[in-house]
């Protein structure tokens, strides 16, 4: 129904998936609620326009989440300078992280803030949204092998950073 322009059905979809989209956008934005809200609102505008082109209803949730992640990435890029300053302050006030094997979740959260929005998007889609490499690749138009490669490289980098610090 929403695909054919039923605004009530569309509102139901918003109610069902908004939280999942905000959580992912929040991770991508590095913890900016305003940016996450803006990104998800923009994602819903995209969804309203393109919902009709989505043929498989089972792909709705991953598709919506990916759109939200992409909108958040784009907003982050536009606000990159500001974000870098904010992240720099966070880094200065952070406690020294443990080596990777003993890294706490708090250490990892801090390390995530130093990643690019693109890398955070990958982590969010994989671990928050629970999408596998094939799903991320299909939604992003890239081979699953590329997604796996980027993810493994990212994990290795985080391990190294936490171990070296």
């Amino acid at each position: 129904m929403a695909a054919t322009g039923d605004s009530v059905a569309f509102a139901r979809i918003v109610a069902a998936y908004h939280a999942d989209m905000v959580r992912v956008a929040y991770v991508v934005s590095g913890g900016s609620q305003d940016l996450a809200d803006d990104a998800v609102q923009a994602a819903w505008a995209v969804a309203w326009r393109k919902l009709g082109s989505l043929r498989d209803p089972e792909r709705l949730k991953p598709w919506l989440i990916t759109v939200a992640a992409n909108e958040a990435r784009q907003l982050c890029r536009r606000q990159r300078r500001t974000a870098l300053v904010e992240l720099h302050v966070d880094t200065l006030t952070a406690e020294g992280p443990d080596p990777a094997d003993g890294a706490t979740i708090l250490d990892l959260e801090r390390a995530m803030l130093n990643l690019s929005p693109d890398d955070r998007a990958l982590l969010a889609l994989r671990y928050e949204a629970g999408l596998d490499s094939s799903q991320i690749g299909a939604l992003a138009g890239r081979p699953a092998s590329t997604v796996r490669w980027r993810l493994s490289r990212l994990i290795a980098r985080l391990r190294k950073e936490l171990a070296d610090a």
């Binding site: 939280a19 990777a100 706490t104 994989r126 928050e128």
Partner: peptide, 30 residues
Amino acid sequence: FEARLAAAVRGFADGADTRVDAAEVASKAI
């Protein structure tokens, strides 16, 4: 390590305020 990373991502996402007025968001999008 990956399990802790996944927990960290989800823990980070828990900081998001996910409350929504679905009708308003839908109305804005439309």
